[in-house]
Design a binder for these strands. Sequence first.
DNA 1: CTGAAAGCGCTAACAC
DNA 2: GTGTTAGCGCTTTCAG
Lengths: 351, 351
Amino acid sequence: MTTDRSAAGRPTLEAVARRAGVSRSTVSRVINGQPAVSPDAVRRVREVVRELGYVPNQNARSLVTRRSDTVAVVITEPQHRLFVDPYFSLQQHGIRRELVERGSYPVLLFIEEPEDYARVEDFLSRGHVDGALLLSLRADDPLPDMTDRLALPAVCVGRRPPSGRAESDRYLYVNSDNRGGAREAVRHLVGLGRRAVATITGAMEQTAAVDRLRGYRDVLPDAAPEMVVEGDFTEAGGAAAMRRLLERNPDVDAVFVASDLMAAGALRVLRERGRRVPEDVAVVGFDDIPAIAEATDPPLTTVNQDAEELGRLMARTLLDHIADCAAGEAVDRTPFTPVIMPTRLVHRASA
Amino acid sequence: MTTDRSAAGRPTLEAVARRAGVSRSTVSRVINGQPAVSPDAVRRVREVVRELGYVPNQNARSLVTRRSDTVAVVITEPQHRLFVDPYFSLQQHGIRRELVERGSYPVLLFIEEPEDYARVEDFLSRGHVDGALLLSLRADDPLPDMTDRLALPAVCVGRRPPSGRAESDRYLYVNSDNRGGAREAVRHLVGLGRRAVATITGAMEQTAAVDRLRGYRDVLPDAAPEMVVEGDFTEAGGAAAMRRLLERNPDVDAVFVASDLMAAGALRVLRERGRRVPEDVAVVGFDDIPAIAEATDPPLTTVNQDAEELGRLMARTLLDHIADCAAGEAVDRTPFTPVIMPTRLVHRASA
DNA sequence: CTGAAAGCGCTAACAC
DNA sequence: GTGTTAGCGCTTTCAG
């Protein structure tokens, strides 16, 4: 008895070939859209494929091609708050679109508890995916070293976390120009003639917070220590930071807040304390999340980053990298070139 | 030249075997923890495995075993809900724990736009997964038919959506006892002596909403039409529904709200309108999400469902089903037995 | 207890 | 254009 269908019950290439009266190679060529096949054969094969409901076995295929056309999107999310954030959804959307357009499929892996690292490592090591996108890494996140160890192509968002590792070609990253954006924001404030420009930073274990503070310092290298207050990227944190700022420094007349959400909190406190914005205190945020920046009173002047484009860029970088790796040794000579997405200041009413 | 490492650069079974001075079969047995291997061989193999950093190629393995030890968790819902809705997180957590304990790995697939259905179908058909968990299905969701067509074992949450399909063994579902829970809630209200018991339903395209309304009708078959107001499972929707209810029916003295979130909205409106809870109007919710039910004023009496356990149950049901399918024909005789999780009323102050 | 041999379903040279 | 021939890396009878 010949094998028309695999043990799993699904028809095989072999079955299609026999039924269509051609060889397996021909069927394979048709399936993979290779050119050198007679129109007639193409038609016959297509017909049988439909008739039998043939679907290629991805495992068999991956075994020989060494590609799964699947990439992992690993999300390290200790703070659920990032997800309420439209910024994140946009980024996800960009990733997905780019991946799908280029024939890959994203698979989401979440890290919510410490044990999840081992699980993810296990999954990644099994060859299910061609590469990984590492999102919202924390400082000293073990993920980059993991993908490195597994020799799995990976791309991170955010600046390279501080780690002893030397430049590894496997470690690529894509980032918003946090430092440049912050610089522009602070320069704008200074350009407005403000003399006491403070800043509310994000949680300093995130590189984005560090970079934004750097941008502030680039413009104001001599800012007094009390002009820098650490927030935590939440609305309440922004409010608390603003209160502290006002206590220590009643004459502050401008503040660069490292996120829109915190800026909303800061604005609330300013209003409670009777300070007019922007007359008494000018405020600039970061992110340009429309739902927040357009809804505050007054509307927030803030630094825009194109989240969707950043997502696409990450995906594109990964896919290109995967292709490079597949191409061979070339990898070792690939220069390490992080991709930085530009930001731009969006003027509204708060500064 | 012998092949010590695959083209992808990773060592193969073959390499381990040679290095350890045994056959591939023996290595395979050790890797898979099969008993009939001499302690000595086990030790040697383990050593070489570690030394070479050997990791089995899952594709090769799946090709022969026909299992990937991976299951898809398909979520028809914007991604962010997963993080906002504690019920959802708990359920996810339950699914994950059960899956992992039994050696499988969950892979998340989101359906957020219409085109995603085709993508998911593509992914599912490629043999990446052994089965699928279908979450938050809408009425007439194409997903069940899809898994059916692909002959992919699947388990849904929620009652079987209305569909022409006859009992299919591939279509299993797990559900909370929405109807029973609603019944208990309404009975409680009636037992309190309330005469005008209304209900705010969920979005009626979700079967959970339908079933909860059924439970209400079981107890109050003759309730006037204006006592039933449709909500949408959001806080704002609950508030709006409560307002409508009060307009149409100023003398309402109790309301069963089909979700805690909506109940929070309803409570807010009641407060605004100066109605005391529970003195003037008694309120019972559904879900028992601590973050909501314990935080409302007054704390919410509500129907508890064990989301985590439901998640575990789904996973268990799917895994068992997959095993059945693998075992062979037995499948056709598997009786169709939906699993219903019991619910219980949690008494707090609102009723 | 262990090894040899036979594939799983597919792609990719390489001939014709 | 199309078929033939080798495997991809692993599991699994089946002999020993």
